[in-house]
C-alpha cells in the first residue's frame, strides 16, 4: 500500500508542476491598464497557485488508479474493503477546511477590504447606459462624450446608471478588471486609477463593453476608452467643452 501512496505522491508533484507551468504559459490576462487590474490579477495568480496542488492531487490519484488497477474484462474478485473510517476523512476535512479558510481570508476578505480602502478621486465621470449605447458625461466640463478619455495616474470615479424605463446594463473595461451594473433609477460607483496609456482602437481590452444581457444589440454596446497623458487630457477637455 505504501508503494501506491509513494507513486501517487510523485505523480502529485509532477501534475502540480505541470498545472503551474501550464497556467504560467497561458498568460491569460489582457493588458494591465490600472492599479486595480494588477490587484485582480494578483488574486487570480494566488488562487491558481493554491488550486494547482489540489488539481494535481486529484489527477494523480485518478491517473494512477486507472493505470494500475484497470481491467478491461469483468473483474474476477472484489477489491480491498476500505470503508473509510478513522483518521483519513478527518485529516481530509481538516486540510480542505484550512484551505477554504485561507482562500476566504486571503485573497478574499483582505482583497475586498483593500478594494474598498481608497474612495478618493480626482475626476468624476457620469456614465449612462442606454439600449444600446453608452454616454459619458464629464461634470467639470459639462459635456457628454461617446468615448471615455482618462488621464494617466489620476484616480477617477465612475458614477454608473441607466435611465428609469431602460434595462440593466453593465459597465466593464477589461483592461481595468472592474465592472458594475447600470441599474435604472440607481447610481453605482467604480473607482479606477489608470496606469498605462492605451486606446481601444488597437487594444480590445480598452473598451467599455456592456456585460449584462440587454436585448437586441447587447453585443455591440461598446464605447472606446483612451488613457492619455494628463496634458493631452486637459487639451481634450478644453476642446470638448469649447464646442
Amino acid at each position: 500500500m505504501s508503494r501506491h501512496v509513494m507513486i501517487v505522491g510523485v505523480l502529485w508533484v509532477f501534475f502540480t508542476a505541470l498545472a503551474l507551468a501550464g497556467a504560467a504559459a497561458m498568460n491569460p490576462f489582457p493588458t494591465v491598464g490600472a492599479e486595480e487590474a494588477e490587484f485582480s490579477d494578483h488574486a487570480f495568480r494566488i488562487m491558481t497557485f493554491m488550486g494547482a496542488p489540489v488539481f494535481g492531487f486529484v489527477i494523480a490519484a485518478l491517473v494512477y488508479n486507472i493505470a494500475r488497477f484497470r481491467s478491461s474484462g469483468q473483474p474476477s474478485e472484489d477489491g480491498p474493503p476500505f470503508k473509510g473510517g478513522g483518521m483519513i476523512p478527518r485529516a481530509w476535512l481538516g486540510v480542505t477546511t484550512a484551505l477554504a479558510v485561507v482562500v476566504m481570508i486571503y485573497p478574499g476578505l483582505t482583497g475586498l477590504a483593500e478594494m474598498r480602502s481608497d474612495r478618493s478621486y480626482d475626476l468624476e465621470v457620469n456614465v449612462t447606459g442606454y439600449r444600446w449605447s453608452w454616454s459619458a458625461q464629464y461634470p467639470d466640463g459639462e459635456f457628454t462624450s461617446n468615448e471615455i478619455v482618462l488621464p494617466k495616474d489620476q484616480r477617477v470615479r465612475f458614477n454608473v446608471t441607466a435611465p428609469a424605463g431602460d434595462v440593466l446594463h453593465s459597465f466593464w473595461v477589461p483592461a481595468f478588471r472592474l465592472k458594475i451594473d447600470a441599474v435604472p433609477g440607481q447610481t453605482n460607483y467604480l473607482w479606477i486609477t489608470p496606469t498605462e496609456l492605451g486606446d481601444g482602437a488597437n487594444d480590445a481590452a480598452f473598451r467599455v463593453q456592456c456585460a449584462e444581457l440587454c436585448g437586441l444589440n447587447h453585443a455591440g454596446m461598446r464605447m472606446n476608452v483612451r488613457v492619455v497623458e494628463p496634458d493631452e487630457f486637459e487639451a481634450w477637455v478644453a476642446e470638448k467643452a469649447g464646442n
Partner: peptide, 15 residues
C-alpha cells in the same frame, strides 16, 4: 472527492 478517490483506490476498475 475524498469518497470518489477512496472508492477507486486499489479497486478492480472495470473500464
Amino acid at each position: 472527492f475524498l469518497a470518489a478517490i477512496g472508492t477507486i483506490w486499489a479497486g478492480r476498475l472495470w473500464m
